[in-house]
Design a protein around this nucleic acid. Sequence first.
DNA 1: CGGGAATCGTTGAATATTCAATATTTTCCA
DNA 2: TGGAAAATATTGAATATTCAACGATTCCCG
Lengths: 145, 145
Amino acid sequence: MAKSPSKPITEHLAYLLAQANREINRQLDARFRKEGVPVEQWRILKVLSDGKGHSMGELAEAVLLNHPTLTKMVDRMVSDALVYRVQDADDRRKVLMFSSDRGKALAQRLNSLALSQEAFIAENYGNKATADLKRLLESLIEKAN
Amino acid sequence: MAKSPSKPITEHLAYLLAQANREINRQLDARFRKEGVPVEQWRILKVLSDGKGHSMGELAEAVLLNHPTLTKMVDRMVSDALVYRVQDADDRRKVLMFSSDRGKALAQRLNSLALSQEAFIAENYGNKATADLKRLLESLIEKAN
DNA sequence: CGGGAATCGTTGAATATTCAATATTTTCCA
DNA sequence: TGGAAAATATTGAATATTCAACGATTCCCG
């Protein structure tokens, strides 16, 4: 009796997610190339664009980075004068992050690029498919927590 | 006139994909913990489980890793006697990768863990939603190439 | 109140990934 | 055929990420 072939990797949800994520991220990175900014920094600037201070913990969660990774990325962004730290007066363990004017300006340029990517996807992939996919992903994320 | 708030990051497809991927990958990693093997090595072992030799190029594409990253991961796996290299006789620029018996045995254990994750997801998230999501991801990946 | 436990962020060392350059082999065409 | 160009994989240096440990602050409860 022949050995049963195992389910191909391309049928695993985990693999499909990784593949789709990699591809979309690459395309976004390509668009960001001219600004020389990695996708993670766009996320950070975007989250900070509400003008409110966000603690490192909040931010790490929101931008999908581990604490130490975020700390070091923020160090670089501080060097580039995109963001700055303020100690939280109410809880001095915390550090509140803010976006500088330079950071806000960059965020706007990156937002344009990201929106143009979204438009491109919606066009080539279809509005309905895009909306359905987003909805399913949101629901998966919610269930997975 | 108030500054128009930009579209929240949680509504970007790129972000939703990154978030879902991160979450699902974490859960899979947690299951693999007891074998002490990262998800990428599962992918490699799985692709090699057809018994045919796969070149590094093919493999890199299939397992979603850059060439140099794959080379170094394979180095580790060779040290662990999970895979081995054979120079391709037909094209001596190429290296063909094979899984060892040890690698095959590990692959089977990892497959079980991965399948059990799939089952868990299908159960909590719904069979239809899971199938729909996979279909949409496949189609996105296809379009994005 | 006092002090142990929990929370928050950072650091340094270990590990992993990436970029550019390289070596080898094959392909192609002048 | 000969030799330039392309394809394949690896290497080393630079960079980035992760893990475990730490320091500082706050919380909680006896």
